[in-house]
Nucleic acid binder design. Structure first.
Lengths: 197, 197
DNA sequence: GGTTGAAATGTTAGCCACTAACATTTACCG
DNA sequence: CGGTAAATGTTAGTGGCTAACATTTCAACC
């Protein structure tokens, strides 16, 4: 989900063939432009031309402009961690416990790069919307793990949505503070979601 | 927020001058078309022409296509209700308590009309994103009320985001079940957010 | 080393949401 | 009935995105 969302794009663009390089170049030019003049006021044509490439080529590497900032999740870890929590717990507590466990198993993100992208997202309403749209898949996985079989899926849906939204809020918050570790922010968010002060 | 979001558009289109009528007509034609062929595959030009009007006129009544389904909140009630909760509570619990109190003071929505719109939203990813984008203003109000002055706003942000997302999930869920009262679904969602089963 | 085949890129044309500037009609009020 | 403002129309354009088809580039193979 969220954090994973963000650094995925950096990870899987293994520099190798021409393809990987063009993609990385587009990404770099785009982030520079976004930081200079904002996401909305930056045009895909501008990005493409800055990378010495055609607009069409841009869309061959990124299905949409927002994909430069918001990436797809990789969620099997989360699913497993949530499933491993005792079924006796209430859905919200169970989701939180699962995510706490999952967080320990995820690689520590390349903070600087992540922060750069999340900062842009935090400053751009349409991108924040894109993030929640992007969380839909992870949310579904969470729901699948949380719903007691044969029972009302309502509570599971509510808990899944709440936890992901809370974590996303924490991530956006983190991107705008300096000198705070992402791990601490996430941990605090999970505390809050458990009803602690 | 959410529910209020949705029936607002129906409420404030008081049939009166030509303006109100054109707006209502556009809305009705649009919802019909959305239900018949889906939101994405319905074009603004189609809607306008079904209402016997120009595309330009459409945008004079609705700032964007999504505004046909997702509306702006009216939040002073929420702000007051949350502020009225004792500051000794943890942020999540305080937000939930405030919303529970606010819910009692809100007018019971015209269920059929609301359900129609929420159903469309539930079936359309981009509209679900639009809903959360639309919740941003309400979320900010919640945060303002939840943050202890001089303290870290992080927990307040997390709690506000989680509660709104949870309620939105409940609303989407409700739209797809028949014979369940919105009030019950909301109440159950607030329970879940308080950590109950 | 030249040939070939596939991957990467380019070109053109077009759809759709949305905006701006300006012209026209409609309805109501004095 | 005339005048005025709101409501609508017209035209032209921008930006994200897609489709269909042509072209280049690179690399493996002969």
């Amino acid at each position: 989900m969220l954090a994973t969302n963000i650094y995925r794009g950096v990870v899987d663009s293994e520099p190798g063939g021409r393809r990987g390089r063009t993609r990385a170049l587009l990404l770099e030019c785009a982030l520079d432009l976004f930081e200079q003049q904002g996401y909305e006021r930056t045009t895909v044509a501008q990005i493409a031309s800055a990378a010495g490439v055609t607009e069409m080529t841009f869309f061959r590497h990124f299905a949409a402009k927002e994909r430069l900032v918001v990436e797809d999740p990789y969620d099997p870890v989360i699913a497993g961690a949530v499933a491993a929590q005792p079924r006796t717990m209430a859905p919200l507590a169970r989701a939180v416990a699962g995510l706490r466990a999952a967080w320990g198993r995820l690689p520590e993100p390349e903070s600087a790069a992540v922060r750069r992208r999340v900062r842009i997202a935090a400053a751009t309403p349409s991108l924040r919307a894109a993030i929640s749209a992007n969380n839909a898949a992870t949310e579904q996985i969470l729901v699948d793990q949380l719903v007691a079989d044969g029972a009302d899926p309502g509570p599971a849906r509510v808990a899944a949505a709440a936890v992901l939204a809370g974590l996303t809020a924490a991530l956006l918050d983190w991107s705008q503070r300096d000198g705070v570790a992402l791990t601490d922010v996430v941990s605090a968010a999970l505390d809050t979601l458990e009803g602690r002060r």
